[in-house]
Design a protein around this nucleic acid. Structure first.
Lengths: 186, 186
DNA sequence: CGCCGAGTTGAACTGAATCAAGAAACGTGG
DNA sequence: CCACGTTTCTTGATTCAGTTCAACTCGGCG
């Protein structure tokens, strides 16, 4: 979905303002494997995924761990960099050829700091992030690997055809071997 | 710390506006065990803990699980109720006699929707919540029970003299027995 | 005194990790 | 279109951290 269409759905903005925002974002069609953000770097960019699939990840004891999947019609940004002004361990890469809209958050901040509507959009974004963390915490704390696998299927029904098993396994907090076993017996 | 002092530290507001906000909050000294919010209810109240310790909790398979500890100088609210307008499984109770300031969020919303400064305060609150969830997810996913115990000691140095063992155990995602064993050997 | 909730300790059990090895799928160049 | 190397996926044996269940200790209080 196009950014402008998405914004129109989410928040009430004048057409003129909407266009202004829309043109502030660049438009790029990028190949599979492309790195939007390098791990352990500072990136104040705000991304909107119009098409495709993005994975954010980090390294823990040399292992590559999936932190989040971002698919169509969602924003993506480094909270550490933008809100806390510090380097972020999370990198972002495309798992599919994708269409990505990008803007520097400083530019966006100009718009936001003059608009209560955009402020509520930021709030909404943060609430979604919070909710997603909260759900995953619950999931890791109380669900078995098998239950988490089922939850994953519900939230991302076709993820298994879009991302390699190892990336999915680390996202739900298990090893690739365990995920393979779980998937087999069902 | 008093609410008004805290607010002054966090965000730039005129003295008049500050007073207006401050008087909107009630002031209550409440006894240990007092329930600020019942589990599985809807509460649009925003609390600020000036003194004492609050525990939010929920039930999972009949067990009482600690969701969060809120101590001095922090806000507390039901995200489910306020932002998603739905009943929340989380209840809140006082672990110590506490001083609590309370306001209905609808009233607060009046202030917020006219103030970009307060909007940024809401953002800050949500960011802190997000960060705390993110840290705990990492903790549960990668740290052993023993490491989580150590982290707990760092974040809440005196929690063991303020809250019963079982409440702390469920917060860090282990059983009371395991926590007891961990604490013994060190 | 004796009860009661909170904390401790120990034995048996278990879900998932680790280690290791092989099978399948994938893509790139000849 | 096939051959070869690389990545991805599967399967099995072993190990371990933490749970469960159950009994026991301790301090406070009616």
């Amino acid at each position: 979905m196009e950014l402008s269409v998405y914004l129109k759905e989410q928040v009430a903005l004048s057409d003129q303002f909407l266009t202004e925002i829309d043109t502030a974002f660049s438009y790029e069609e990028l190949p599979k494997g492309y790195r939007l953000v390098e791990p352990y770097s500072m990136s104040k960019k705000l991304f909107f995924v119009e098409k495709g699939l993005v994975r954010s990840f980090y390294f823990k004891d040399g292992r590559d761990i999936t932190h989040h999947f971002t698919s169509e019609n969602d924003f993506l940004a480094s909270i550490d960099s933008i809100f806390f002004g510090q380097e972020s361990p999370y990198g972002c890469e495309l798992l599919e050829p994708s269409v990505v809209r990008t803007v520097n958050y400083d530019v966006m901040q100009q718009f936001i700091s003059n608009s209560l509507e955009l402020n509520s959009l930021v709030q909404l974004f943060l609430l979604k992030v919070t909710k997603s963390f909260s759900d995953r915490l619950f999931s890791i704390q109380f669900q078995t690997a098998h239950e988490r696998y089922n939850s994953m299927l519900k939230v991302y029904p076709n993820i298994f055809s879009r991302a390699p098993l190892g990336h999915i396994a680390s996202y739900i907090g298990i090893t690739q071997q365990t995920l393979s076993v779980i998937r087999a017996k069902k």
